[in-house]
Nucleic acid binder design. Structure first.
Length: 557
RNA sequence: GCGCCAGUAGCUCAGCUGGAUAGAGCACCAGACUUCGGAUCUGGGUGUCGGGGGUUCGAAUCCUCCCUGGCGCGCCA
């Protein structure tokens, strides 16, 4: 807000200076403002004069002074402007402006930080999309936390967001068949028959449990079926259970999808066949070695990829291309997929497929998050669905709770791998930063409760004299509240969800510091009212941030 | 061999569309409350920002080469 106003004023100043001939016309610099690390350098700072100086060969400080002569700022925005160092122009926001932020938060309430930059455009966000061959693992939690938070962020800035989960349930897929064979073996074993899990099958114990449940529910009625038929029947039964468990796990984690998209529906509706036909007509596929290939090399990939196997079954890629065609046909303005790091190699070929169908690839982004490594103490836990060592997400959520789990997953950039120590997360749950932030919220609620008990009336926004807020901690806190709208927008536009946890912690820190130094309920009624207003604004802001990352804001802890 | 990600304080990581003296949390040490919740606050950092070269007023940030680690490179998904 303040940033936009300053950028505009600076741009106008530059134009005026150029019109007046004080700065050469050819100096075309874009105005950028940053928050200086050192608070002595003000609240906002620009290196504009230095850029112009290097373009025109004039001394930077002189250019800065020239800019300032032409600068006309909105009334009451800035207290101090200075030219510093090699030619920085530093601005210090006025106390009145900072108090205005508090008033704005009180006025806007939950709507604070919302914007319409998205313009009501539609976004399909696909994430998690784990194979239906077992329970959701801890890694999926990272995708879920990031995806859901990103969806919240985009909704905040005016996009219409749809959350989608893609279920790879195509029964002709090799992995599903492998899984079905494993299930079959476990089923037979449950019924006392001699059978063994195929070598490339799923070794995990959870398949044994599934088979046991199957027997408990359905008995031996599949036993007499022909082998192929039994495989299908067993799998279809378990598919329902698995998808249901995924839905349950996601819900327990606080994530609700708008659609669960079944890959099988693409095959049943001939959408895969139609997509393949379209690729062929567009000249982007060819036959070789009895298979049909995507000419991905012509669209930026290193190699071509099989679309239809020589036995006639479509590949995973074929289904995925048809799936993304379907997404575009549903009319979304923008698609974002969040994938795990093992799918990194699929980015180029999927984009190539989308492009080959004639869709605008710039409307389709694929974000890759890095792995989650699990530790029990110092021992690393190997995770592989087929090897069977799954650490289920549901167990983690039960252990540390959805709040701590989500916060933890969101604390670092999705580009870096995440080490999750299960013991530490359990044992030292109290030290998890999520509590620091939640405690700030609970403390505020406690103050407000206390005020009520003492019969202190909560101030009417119009009647409060916010001028009484003048301590550094008070104004610093207000400044933090003012950062939120820009933070939300940046986090959404750059798809950087970890910015929100940082934002939450900084907000909490600013509040805790304020709390220590400024007594809210005091003998001065006017000051008490002003501080109660500030505290209410902080509560609103904290709730917004916590809501975005999907963490609860408890009133008591 | 090729591709993607990472390499920053003892540990875990921010900072990366170039800005001033490179930050936070944890751990460790020392302090702070007769009053609103001590799950708090305050103070304490000698870091080859993996290494070399380049670009420029200015590089952790951009380019390039190299080193190390993770992940991927299938007519699996």
């Amino acid at each position: 807000m303040a940033k936009e106003l300053l950028i505009q004023a600076l741009s106008e100043a530059l134009t005026r200076a150029q019109t007046a001939g004080d700065i050469p016309e050819n100096a075309a610099a874009e105005v950028e403002l940053q928050t200086p690390r050192d608070p002595r350098h003000g609240d906002l700072s620009t290196g504009l004069a230095m850029v112009i100086a290097s373009e025109t060969g004039r001394p930077a400080r002189e250019v800065a002074e020239t800019l300032l002569r032409h600068l006309q700022l909105p009334e009451g925005l800035v207290d101090d402007i200075s030219v510093a160092g090699p030619g920085f122009v530093n601005f210090t926001l006025s106390a009145a402006w900072l108090r205005g932020i508090v008033r704005r938060v009180l006025d806007q309430g939950e709507r604070y930080g919302r914007s319409e930059v998205g313009g009501g455009r539609s976004l399909l966000l696909e994430f998690v999309s784990a194979n239906p061959t077992g329970p959701l693992a801890v890694v999926q939690g990272r995708a879920a936390a990031v995806g859901d938070t990103l969806a919240n962020l985009f909704e905040r800035i005016g996009w219409r967001v749809s959350r989608e989960y893609y279920v790879n349930d195509a029964t002709n897929s090799t992995q599903v068949q492998r899984f079905a064979e494993t299930l079959d073996a476990r089923y037979l074993q449950q019924l006392g028959k001699d059978a063994s899990v195929p070598e490339d099958g799923y070794q995990g114990e959870y398949v044994v449990d599934m088979a046991a449940e199957l027997v408990a529910a359905e008995g031996d009625r599949y036993l007499e079926m022909p082998h192929a038929e039994r495989l299908t029947a067993l799998y279809e039964y378990c598919l329902r259970q698995i998808v249901a468990s995924h839905k349950r796990d996601m819900l327990a984690f606080g994530v609700e999808f708008d659609t669960w998209f079944m890959e099988s529906s693409l095959h049943e509706n001939d959408e895969v066949a139609r997509a393949m036909e379209a690729l062929k007509e567009a000249g982007h596929s060819y036959e070789a070695d009895g298979a049909v290939w995507l000419r991905a090399t012509e669209l930026g990939d290193e190699q071509d990829h099989v679309l239809i196997r020589s036995d006639g079954r479509p590949s995973y890629l074929a289904g995925d291309i048809a799936y993304h065609k379907n997404k575009f046909e549903r009319g979304f303005d923008r698609l974002i997929d969040i994938w795990g790091p093992d799918h990194q190699g699929h980015v180029k070929r999927t984009k190539a497929g989308v492009q080959a169908l004639g869709y605008d690839a710039s409307r389709f982004e694929i974000l890759i998050h890095q792995i989650v490594r699990l530790f029990r103490g110092s021992e690393m836990v190997r995770m592989s669905k087929r090897a069977g060592d799954i650490v289920p997400l549901a167990g983690l959520v039960e252990d540390v709770g959805p709040d701590a789990a989500r916060f933890f997953f969101l604390m670092q950039s999705m580009d870096s791998q995440l080490d999750f120590d299960l013991e530490l997360a359990k044992k030292q749950a109290n030290e998890n930063p999520v509590y620091y932030v939640q405690y700030a919220h609970a403390r505020i609620c406690s103050i407000l409760r206390e005020a009520e008990e003492r019969g202190v009336r909560l101030p009417q926004p119009d009647a409060v004299n916010l001028d009484r807020l003048e301590a550094p901690d008070e104004l610093g806190l207000a400044r933090k509240l003012g950062d939120l709208p820009d933070e939300i927008q940046q986090a959404a536009e750059r798809c950087e969800t970890h910015r929100m946890t940082r934002c939450a912690r900084e907000l909490g820190a600013a509040f805790h510091s304020f709390y220590t130094n400024c007594r809210v309920l005091n003998d001065d009624a006017e000051l008490t009212a002003a501080r109660l207003s500030l505290v209410q604004a902080v509560r609103t802001t904290l709730r917004i941030v916590l809501d975005i990352i999907g963490v609860s804001a408890p009133e008591k802890m």
